[in-house]
Simulated assay, not measured.
Amino acid sequence: MNSLLNTYQQASHILSDLLYQGGWVLSLLLMLSSLLASLLLERYWFRFVSYPKLLRNYQQTQSKTLPLHWQAAAKDLSRRCDLELALGRYLSLIKNLISLCPLLGLLGTVSGMIEVFDNMAVSANSDPQLMAAAIARATLPTMLGMSIALLGIINFTYLKRWSQRSQLNLAATGLSLGSHQ
Rank of each mutant, 00 (worst) to 15 (best):
L100A: 12
Q167K: 12
Y90H: 14
A149H: 00
V25Q: 06
S78T: 13
S163P: 05
N2C: 04
M143I: 04
S33C: 15
Q167L: 10
F48M: 15
G152Q: 00
L68P: 01
L170D: 03
S92N: 11
G178E: 12
I94W: 02
Q167F: 02
S12G: 11
Q59S: 13
V110T: 07
L35P: 04
N125Y: 05
Q181M: 15
Y58W: 13
F117N: 02
S147F: 07
G152D: 02
S99V: 05
M131K: 03
N57D: 15
H13K: 15
L93F: 07
I148F: 09
G108Y: 00
V122W: 10
I114Y: 04
P52F: 14
L5N: 05
L26N: 01
G174S: 09
L77N: 11
Y90N: 05
Y90A: 02
Q167V: 10
R47H: 08
S27V: 05
Y158T: 08
D118Q: 11
A37W: 13
Y51F: 14
L168I: 13
Q21Y: 11
S147H: 06
Q10L: 12
E42P: 00
M143V: 08
A11C: 11
C101G: 05
S126E: 12
L36C: 04
I98Y: 00
V116C: 07
G112I: 03
S50D: 15
H69P: 02
L150D: 08
T139R: 01
S12W: 11
S38P: 01
Y44P: 01
T7P: 03
V116Q: 04
G22H: 02
R80H: 08
N169A: 12
S16D: 12
L83P: 01
G105A: 02
K95D: 09
A86T: 03
A74L: 12
P102M: 05
F117H: 02
G174I: 10
L150N: 08
S34I: 12
S126C: 06
H180E: 14
A124S: 08
Q167H: 12
L66W: 11
L91N: 03
